[in-house]
Amino acid sequence: MTRLEIDHLYVPVAGRTILHDIGFTAEGGSLIGLVGPNGAGKSTLAKTIAGLLQPASGTIAVNGVALDTMDRRDAARKIAYLSQGDTVHWPLAVRATVTLGRAPHSGRFGTASPGDRRAVEAALHRADVLSLADRNIQQLSGGERARVLLARALAVEAPILIADEPVGALDPRHALNIIGLLREEAARGALVIAVLHDLALASRFCDRLLVMRDGRLAADGPPHDVLSPAGMEQHYAVAAHHGTHEAERFVIPWRTLNAADRKPNQEGETA
């Protein structure tokens, strides 16, 4: 089983330390939500795990091997990254776009091997975009494009998938659809870490939540522990509605709390 270990991670961006002393361990077969207010450092952490930002100190290790000792392409085969946004710069066909996900596996000038083709078809199938395979990606709807880009990330067949706001701009149906697909990947044994803002989705679908606040890991645990009424107040400065529907628990942010409503020790820690 894949094991991701992060220890004492400090990450600077443009000379300023954004992430402070991040540490956690995660294993395959789980969907972990990375939540927290805007500007807390969620995307920075996602990018650092994906190898896009260089930590100042600390380690990220996959199955005991530190990321910075791995060859670039080796690391790319271990950790797939689904970026925020859905820009594809040229009107490529859907299948060609998904095939790009095989880059960490192919030789520099190599054409797609039968294994690559199988992986691409499997990814198209898993993200339910097989019927769109010959379409121009720029002509798809936002929801369809999100599924295609997820298929691109799945085509890497990495044991770890980092998704930065995969449901950020999607309507409810497509958001449920994408988070369901991430859930399935976790069920297949992958470790999926997703940056999420929708706490109703995060509390329902994630096995575990990591709450980021001011560049630090503020809480780490099962969704309903970290998003308890006290947690919602502490991390988000909001009061929330906690409910149960069809035997599943959910959290809905209800109203903002102003300074007077809050405990004295949490002043000035939003945004």
């Binding site: 994906a50 970026s83 710069h89 490529l92 776009t97």
Partner: peptide, 9 residues
């Protein structure tokens, strides 16, 4: 085509 972050990943 997928942006520099995705390409580097």
């Amino acid at each position: 085509s997928l942006g520099e972050d995705t390409a580097r990943s």
